[in-house]
């Protein structure tokens, strides 16, 4: 087996395309984790993922109670999809997820972005999706460094030992 010291990961480019709590947090934990390890990290939000860095939506992310087989009731029973369609259920499920996360001391989205940028990580928004959703630079969190094209993303990814991860 190759020695782990021989080829360390030097840079990660993490792309988040979804607005579900669980997907956004997967991207945030991975990016922040890289920053904590001294790995250069850039987090790029596209399509629905833009909600996570839009001032208007970043505090109101949801988890989907419909079509989500991993979601269970507090007792462990499967969560019925039909229940998920009722008004308020999605908000309730999302609030429960957030309170659970708070209990284990997981930071909020905004605080995560702050941790990442404080450690030298960079946050970007996808230009195409930004145009598609009719958003402007001022709609985004102050932690967003720039709105860039996919070509610029690949330019930023250049170098040996880079990993591109899509969430």
């Amino acid at each position: 087996m190759a020695n782990v010291q021989d080829h360390p990961i030097k840079k990660v480019m993490i792309i988040c395309s979804k607005a579900n709590i669980e997907d956004v947090y997967a991207a945030l934990v991975m990016t922040n984790g890289a920053v904590m390890e001294g790995i250069e990290a850039k987090l790029f939000f596209t399509f629905f993922g833009l909600d996570a860095i839009t001032k208007k939506h970043m505090k109101k992310l949801h988890t989907a109670p419909v079509g989500n087989p991993g979601l269970r009731m507090p007792g462990g029973l499967p969560f019925p999809t039909l229940l998920g369609i009722l008004p308020g259920v999605e908000a309730g499920v999302s609030a429960m997820m957030k309170s659970q996360m708070e209990k284990v001391d997981i930071p909020t989205v905004d605080e995560f972005l702050e941790l990442i940028t404080a450690g030298g990580g960079e946050i970007y928004a996808c230009k195409l999706a930004v145009e598609m959703f009719g958003l402007k630079k001022e709609d985004f969190s102050e932690h967003v460094k720039d709105i860039i094209t996919i070509g610029q993303l690949y330019e930023l990814a250049a170098g040996e030992g880079t990993q591109i991860i899509f969430v």
Binding site: M36, E37, G119
Partner: peptide, 16 residues
């Protein structure tokens, strides 16, 4: 210290 300062004092992987 704040987070940024912590990264500056121990560059790279501050907690480790």
């Amino acid at each position: 210290i704040d987070t940024k300062g912590f990264y500056e004092l121990f560059p790279g992987a501050p907690l480790k």
